[in-house]
Simulated assay, not measured.
Amino acid sequence: MKIVKIKRKTKIKNIHSKNMGRLSSHVTSIKKYLLGIPIATLHKYRETYYGEVKDCKDCILQA
């Protein structure tokens, strides 16, 4: 059994940007787990409308 794991999970979230307006996008987050409990989010990125991969700091996420 591993004590520390790193998992990647993809969700569909609504994103609002100034240029495109509101759109649904796949947001992938990479998290670090200790004994099955999430400790920290290492990285978050999303796939754009055109298929590019960008960091989530470039957009405003709406829940």
Rank of each mutant, 00 (worst) to 15 (best):
V53K: 04
Y45P: 07
D55N: 05
M1V: 12
N14F: 11
I60T: 06
N14C: 10
K31H: 05
L35E: 04
M1I: 09
Y50K: 10
I39N: 00
K9S: 13
K54C: 03
K5S: 13
K13Y: 10
V53M: 06
C56V: 07
Y50T: 13
K32R: 02
G36C: 05
S25M: 12
S24A: 15
V27N: 01
T10V: 01
D55T: 00
V4F: 05
M1N: 14
T10Y: 10
K2P: 15
L34Q: 10
I60Y: 09
C59V: 05
C59F: 11
C56H: 05
D55P: 05
C59P: 00
T10C: 08
K2F: 13
K31I: 02
K18T: 09
Y45T: 01
I3G: 11
K11L: 14
Y49N: 10
I30W: 01
E47V: 06
G51E: 01
H43L: 06
S24K: 10
L42E: 12
I39M: 03
L61F: 12
E47L: 06
I6Q: 05
P38E: 02
R8Y: 15
M20R: 13
E52G: 03
D55F: 02
V4Q: 02
N19T: 08
T28S: 08
T28A: 05
S24C: 11
K18H: 12
G36V: 01
G21A: 04
K7N: 14
S25K: 05
S24P: 13
V4P: 03
K9Y: 12
K13G: 00
S29V: 03
I15S: 00
I12R: 08
E47N: 11
T48I: 02
I15D: 04
T28R: 04
L23E: 14
I37S: 07
I3Q: 06
L23R: 10
K44V: 02
L23I: 07
T28Q: 00
K9M: 09
Y50N: 14
H16M: 07
I12S: 12
E52T: 04
R8Q: 15
L61V: 05
